[in-house]
Design a protein around this nucleic acid. Structure first.
Lengths: 279, 279
DNA sequence: GCAAATTTGTTCGTATGTATT
DNA sequence: CAATACATACGAACAAATTTG
């Protein structure tokens, strides 16, 4: 039995998009036009377009039309520690350097600082009792004016008691909290564990990242637990990145310098074109 | 101006799901029932349910009903090299060990082996001319009888010429291709670069992993380029994992043994409950 | 094993609302 | 303000898959 009508129409449009007949940014015919071309009711046409929307191929704009999506240039975050600085990617100074190295423009407003009760994952990862107080430093980051990540770092209150008072400063800690903790408490970074997950965005996240409200684009959520010299966790950093414009890189062992650069070119070659897993 | 009716209905159902009134696995009322309860047409009810479906909260089954989704226990793959064996996660022997370490049951049928022409990413990453021949070894992997990953490793034909003839064997190379290359050509693993991306599944992948056909669940696609002692790439491994049941872990520096174990508990604590990024 | 009932899926038609040009 | 374009909502009929009797 053939596919339902709306699928047939959707697949025809999909082929036009993937073959380049409808290039990124192009406007699809309007619903009444498609109704005439494919001799289907408007509801069926709308169902076909919705199918494309759910797959992230097109995007509809009320009052304007339906357009083939333009993929943003992906940004690469290195998770493994830098062999020179010993810093992991995505945080403070390391973030700004990595953005500039990719020829792009970083911006981060001062963090919001709050005192919260540790619960669930936060308490477990920091090894503090459930309900005890932690400092939460919440940071928004932009690249080329576009929202790029939402990061919250949690520190046990015991660090503040031990002398790291500036953790509770409302402004930025320059050149970075990692650096500050090393100076004040002697903690060396480059001992951490990252966990990388993917999930649907929450409403606030969808708003901040300007994601389509159909739940189509998911977000990466990374959990970084950092340990001090004695192996005790002293920091948990949770970061959310939109999955449609972010990728991660991990280096193991001594990887040639060539392979560390010019990665952006490979990353940008849309996975939609190269299909290394086809049969 | 309030939300449209279908959204109001969807959000009421969403609250029932998230508050536990409708626990995972529960059956939602049928469409005719919802029609009566919310005094909306069947089409509007269906739109509300579709909204929940697009967010991955429920799943409809033709002829049966609509059910609250049950999240599978996530599986963790370690990307950074094992400090003892020097092996990266997700490949050959390392895969089986990691699965058993998490108390689960690995299964992998023998790989399919093909000769292909290198194009795009494959040629670039392996540093071979576009169009030259490569050996592709394609492997399906299961955990607890469920499809878990689809992996293809590419090797330049020059390795076969240099003596690694078994790369073209149809069956498995025990205890693993990495081990074999070290024996025959002296390549040491533990020099590689991983790139982690997320995208919509292709039709074959959705079929193999039994993903819902609405494009809701996306897949991780990881690209691992391995380098020999001279810094020349000798292998590219592309792996696809369903994002709804997989997570990744990266260790940097000497992380305490405690933090390497008991990770599964933290990972399983559904991100749907703990909301570390809320305002 | 078959038929009926139940439940979601597809397709049409129609009317009205809202945002953009 | 008018025309265009997508969004919401209702009603109706039949199809396909599953469960029940």
């Amino acid at each position: 039995m053939p596919d339902p009508l709306y699928r047939q129409i959707a697949e025809k449009l999909q082929r036009m998009i993937e073959s380049g007949v409808l290039p990124p940014g192009a406007k699809l015919p309007t619903e009444p036009e498609l109704t005439r071309v494919y001799k289907a009711s408007r509801n069926t046409i709308r169902q076909a377009v919705r199918w494309l929307t759910n797959r992230g191929l097109v995007q509809t704009r009320l009052g304007q039309g339906t357009y083939v999506v333009q993929r943003a240039r992906p940004f690469l975050t290195t998770l493994s520690a830098d062999p020179d600085t010993g810093l992991g990617g995505g945080e403070g100074e390391a973030y700004r350097e990595e953005v500039r190295a990719q020829g792009r423009d970083p911006f981060a407003p001062p963090p919001r600082v709050e005192i919260r009760q540790a619960t669930g994952v936060i308490a477990e990862e920091l090894g503090v009792p459930d309900g005890s107080s932690v400092v939460a430093r919440r940071q928004q980051r932009y690249i080329d004016e576009a929202a790029f990540s939402l990061q919250t770092s949690y520190y046990p209150m015991s660090l503040v008691d031990a002398g790291a008072e500036r953790l509770m400063d409302a402004g930025s800690i320059e050149p970075g909290a990692v650096h500050y903790l090393r100076e004040v408490l002697g903690f060396r970074q480059a001992r951490y564990r990252d966990r990388i997950t993917v999930r649907a965005p929450r409403a606030e996240e969808a708003g901040f990242f300007k994601l389509p409200d159909n739940g189509r684009v998911s977000v990466f959520e990374t959990f970084r637990t950092a340990y001090d010299g004695a192996g005790k966790p002293f920091r948990l950093t949770v970061t959310v990145f939109p999955a449609d414009r972010n990728q991660f890189v991990v280096f193991a062992g001594e990887v040639p310098a060539d392979a560390r650069k010019a990665l952006t070119a490979v990353a940008a070659s849309a996975t939609g074109n190269a299909r290394p897993n086809d049969a």
